[in-house]
């Protein structure tokens, strides 16, 4: 560069210099003011009650405002990821909990929650769902193939490359099926069963949604697989114009997931939290569960919708209730992953 320090410097000072300076100043102001804002943020407010839930929680606006008028508290929902990550977040933050009440801790995580004293009293059950296989009725009719009747059948050659399941490492329904296989075949036999499934071309996907909506032929995604790991309630969502469901469940050897709620230890509004738990047990909320979250209400006095009693009754036989899933999942997953990775 030729030496032109004088004029160049002047030019920079007059034009670009001030522009950059402004940019810098603006940035400083933005940072300082936002930090100041953060300092003043309210940490507790006795007029609200904060419910920590998983991402699949649905509560209609009518029900929310019903609770708010009845209790006088404003309801705030904090959706903290799927059931597993929500529970982990609660454990990591138990000294300063991120809410007052929790909904959605399931039976596999109960012991973990108790060990960590997450809630002030015993968690109460709110709803349940049965993890079963679903199949595409039309597909089997068209192929003139008998429908599978148990999880044993899925390893048979006539059902080769027909089944899609979700990964037990990344989804709770997948974990439920892993537990099912252990309950049915025992600790010594389940890996053998999975080896057969693998040989029979079972497809593994990350989440239940992938399996059900993208890979399963009986749902909206029109995928390639006519058998999917899902819930006994799913066929109620596949009722077509002819008034019949396009899918059905294999209702034997299913795993029941029960969801619980409780008041968090160290809650800033324990009274409001308790009222909220009572509301979750009330018949209004219980009756909304099938339509909103596709689960069965824990209160057996609540009548199920018509399509549910017709197409989506709960499972006939349940397995795996005696298993310590939380305590064993690490080693089970390790063995399972060794087979599938």
């Amino acid at each position: 560069m030729p030496a032109q320090g004088g004029p160049l410097t002047r030019a920079l000072l007059n034009e670009e210099g001030t522009k950059v300076q402004k940019l810098f100043k603006a940035a400083t102001v933005a940072v300082i003011s936002s930090l100041a804002l953060a300092g003043c943020a309210p940490t507790s407010d006795p007029t609200t009650v904060v419910l920590v839930t998983h991402d699949s929680f649905v509560m209609s606006e009518e029900l929310q405002s019903k609770f708010e008028t009845e209790s006088g508290y404003e309801l705030k929902l904090v959706k903290a990821g799927d059931t597993g990550s929500m529970t982990n977040k609660l454990i990591l933050t138990k000294e300063q909990p991120i809410g007052d009440a929790v909904f959605g801790i399931d039976n596999t995580l109960l012991d973990l929650a108790a060990e960590n004293e997450l809630t002030t009293s015993k968690l109460v059950p709110i709803d349940f769902a049965d993890v079963c296989f679903n199949y595409d009725i039309n597909w089997f009719a068209a192929k003139k193939l008998p429908v599978p009747e148990s999880i044993n059948d899925l390893a048979l050659p006539q059902y080769k490359k027909l089944t899609v399941v979700s990964n037990p490492a990344t989804s709770s329904s997948g974990m439920a099926f892993l537990a099912t296989s252990i309950a049915v075949f025992g600790e010594e036999g389940y890996l053998n069963y999975w080896t057969q499934l693998k040989r029979n071309g079972v497809k593994i996907v990350a989440g239940w949604e992938d399996a059900y909506f993208s890979e399963f032929s009986g749902s909206s995604g029109r995928g390639k697989y006519p058998i999917v790991l899902s819930y006994s309630s799913s066929p109620a969502a596949e009722v077509r114009e002819n008034g019949k469901s396009q899918t059905a469940s294999i209702r034997t050897d299913c795993y029941r997931q029960t969801e619980f709620a409780g008041v968090l230890t160290g809650a800033s509004n324990p009274k409001g939290a308790l009222e909220l738990i009572e509301f979750l047990k009330s018949s209004d909320f219980q009756a909304s569960l099938p339509e909103n979250m596709y689960v069965y209400p824990i209160d057996s006095n609540i009548a199920l919708p018509d399509s549910w009693s017709k197409f989506a009754p709960s499972a006939l036989t349940l397995v795996g209730e005696e298993l310590d899933v939380a305590g064993n999942r690490k080693q089970w997953l390790k063995a399972w992953s060794a087979l599938f990775e």
Binding site: N88, N167, V205, A206, G207, R329, E341
Partner: peptide, 21 residues
């Protein structure tokens, strides 16, 4: 990876997030 391929970062995430290990 669809949950079947693990690298250090995804394994860290699943250890911390799913297994609380």
């Amino acid at each position: 990876g669809g949950g079947q391929i693990q690298s250090l970062e995804t394994e860290i995430a699943s250890a911390a997030n799913t297994l609380l290990d």
